[in-house]
C-alpha cells in the first residue's frame, strides 16, 4: 500500500522545488522538528525513507539536528538558484522533508546538486540510532 505523499505545491515543469506548505503538525506530542530523507533512483531503484524526530533524540543531538536544519534553510535558496541545468543520468534523487513547528519545507535535489548542508543533514539523519528506515513503493498505477 502506498503512503500518502506530502502535500505540496509546485510550478509545472520545474525540475526541483523548494517550498513551504504551512501544514499543521501531525501530533501535538511532536510539535517541534522532524526530518525525513527520501531517496530514489540510483543503481537499485529503491525508494527509501529515513526519518528522525527531535523529540526522540537526546537534547544535544536534537540541537545538532536543529543546527543542521538551519544551515539547510540558509543554503537552500542559493542551492536552487545555482543548480546545474543537467543531471547525471540515473543518479540518486533526494527529497528532504522538514516539519518544523507546523511548517513543512520540502527540498528536491539530485545527488550531484546537493549542497554540503543537505548532505550533512542527510548523513546526520542516516547515522542516528533513533532513525526509522522504511522502503516505500515507487510511483506507478
Amino acid at each position: 500500500m502506498r503512503e500518502p505523499r506530502p502535500l505540496r505545491s509546485r510550478a509545472p515543469g520545474t525540475a526541483s522545488a523548494f517550498y513551504h506548505d504551512g501544514m499543521s503538525a501531525e501530533s501535538p506530542h511532536d510539535p517541534d522538528l522532524s526530518v525525513a530523507i527520501i531517496r530514489g533512483g540510483g543503481v537499485g531503484g529503491f525508494v527509501t525513507r529515513t526519518a528522525v524526530s527531535a523529540d526522540s533524540l537526546p537534547a544535544e543531538a536534537a540541537s545538532g539536528l536543529r543546527r543542521r536544519v538551519r544551515s539547510v534553510s540558509v543554503d537552500a535558496a542559493s542551492a536552487q538558484a545555482a543548480r546545474p541545468s543537467g543531471r547525471h543520468p540515473d543518479e540518486l534523487l533526494y527529497q528532504v522533508v522538514i516539519d518544523d513547528a507546523g511548517e513543512r519545507t520540502t527540498l528536491e535535489l539530485a545527488e550531484s546538486q546537493l549542497p554540503d548542508s543537505v548532505r550533512d543533514l542527510a548523513e546526520y539523519v542516516d547515522t542516528r540510532p533513533e532513525r526509522t528506515l522504511e522502503i516505500e513503493p515507487p510511483a506507478g498505477p
Binding site: 525540475a15 527520501i38 531503484g45 525508494v47 527529497q95 528536491e108 515507487p138 498505477p141
Partner: peptide, 29 residues
C-alpha cells in the same frame, strides 16, 4: 514493491524529474 512491467501494455510513463519516487523517468521500473 516490484512494479516492473513485462510488456509495453504495462509501460509506466513517469516524469524525468527530481521526485525520487519517479525513478528518473521510470528507468528501473
Amino acid at each position: 514493491y516490484d512494479t516492473q512491467p513485462g510488456t509495453m501494455s504495462g509501460y509506466q510513463n513517469l516524469p524525468d524529474d527530481t521526485d525520487p519516487r519517479n525513478d528518473n523517468g521510470g528507468v528501473h521500473i
